[in-house]
Simulated assay, not measured.
Amino acid sequence: MCPKDSVIDDAFAAALYGDGDEGLDTGASLLAAAPGADAELRRRGEEYLRRAWRGGWQPADVVRLVRRDLAEPHVRLAAELILAETRGYAHLPPRWAHQLADLDPGSEPARPRDRFSYATTHLQLYRLLLRLPPIEPVGPPPGETVPGPVEGEPRALTRIRALLAKAEATGYPEEAEALTAKAQELMARHSLDEALLAARTHAKDVPGACRVGVDAPYETAKAILLDSVAAANRCRAVWNEAFGFSTVVGFESDLEAVELLYTSLLVQGTAAMTKAEAGQRAAGRKRTKTFRQTFLLAYAHRIGARLARAGEHAVREAAEAAEAAEGSGGSAASLLPVLAARDVAVTDRTERMFPETTTTRVRGATDGEGWAHGTAAADRAHVAPRDRGPALP
């Protein structure tokens, strides 16, 4: 065994398997006195990342958890290690390219002021990585990916993205309402087109899954909002409260729509909440936390019904259009069975991934003004109450 390996092993034995600071300090002291072990220290970090990938984790999941539980130097270090480790693969799983593009380790490597701090940052990060439990995979780990055809983004999604960006940017509620409504209409039509195309060509299209971050504060309201968006787009969402994300299960075109619309609605809702809260403070109210919580719950509550109605309207329109189309050959009659079959497939995949789920009771909707303002904001976003909270694994 090389001396550097011995130092690493002794430091890790002291620091990574206990909860207190004493072992962490001991391990950091050993590493601080052995600068020749730095390369092996980084290599061990990449090894922990490979273990995380095999356990179902993805880059965005790891960074989200590091940001929540540690500090900014740990986030930069995690980004450096992830980017270095993933360069070794010829092909990466779907969605990883976007996740890696969002990582920002900074222009310079993460180097704290002294070697003890440098070592401590590594050991604190590695302790977190070592304790990551296996989770439900939403795709293959790197190294097991077969490259597919490279295709551009469907035109419908490009239009949807542009509409939602305009809705987020406008200062006029009526314009935001119209833009968001148009985006949801396009999403529904795109989903129906994809479903019919897959049925007609007998494509072996199966549901997939992705993870969407659900960050504090007010994460229950955010999870309900995501649940509503997922349901309206023929997907299912299961919230993992402990790790700050929901797993969304559905067909690929629907998953992309859910990510886009949820992000946009959260931006619009947060902006509306901030504006309404400022008005409340100007009027002399100080219960801002209760106001925000109730606002977002009402917003999510109202959004669900509006999106569900939009989806039902799109299905009716598509069926009527198929019925009226010359030579449709019974396309309208085949639409509902196709959608029903896809719903069954999504439900089956969700139940196989999460054989045991529960529901969570929603608390905190106690501010009348917050509820009224949140409902009004949802109406302006043009996007019913849900009888339960989001599913929990």
Rank of each mutant, 00 (worst) to 15 (best):
A322F: 10
A283V: 03
L339W: 06
D227A: 11
L130R: 15
R352L: 12
R42H: 11
I8K: 07
A101Y: 01
L41Y: 04
C2S: 13
F243H: 13
G36Y: 10
R281Y: 05
R95Y: 09
Q293V: 00
G23N: 03
D193P: 01
G171Y: 01
A308E: 12
G368E: 14
A314F: 07
R386M: 03
R127G: 02
D69F: 00
A28W: 05
A381N: 07
A203R: 14
T145P: 05
A232Q: 12
S29P: 00
F12M: 11
Y218K: 01
A39S: 13
R292P: 07
A176T: 01
R155E: 15
W53D: 02
S29F: 02
R211S: 02
E144M: 11
A318V: 02
T201I: 06
H98C: 00
L130Q: 13
R285H: 08
A39Y: 10
P105W: 00
P154C: 04
T270R: 15
A365L: 11
L130C: 06
S117Y: 04
P154V: 05
E168K: 15
L339K: 09
G368I: 07
P337Y: 07
A97M: 11
K166S: 12
E323R: 14
L255W: 07
L261H: 09
A271H: 13
D215A: 02
A325C: 08
E80C: 04
L336E: 14
F245N: 08
A216C: 06
H202Q: 13
I135E: 02
M1Y: 08
G152A: 11
T220R: 00
A232K: 07
R302L: 04
P133Y: 05
S246E: 08
L100S: 03
V338N: 03
Y118Q: 12
Q184F: 09
G327P: 04
R155Y: 08
G311A: 14
A276R: 07
D254I: 05
V249C: 13
R87A: 13
T274S: 12
A381L: 02
A340F: 06
L130V: 04
A15G: 08
Q124A: 07
D61T: 03
E312Q: 12
R42P: 06
D348S: 14
A90V: 06
G139T: 03
E144G: 12
S253L: 11
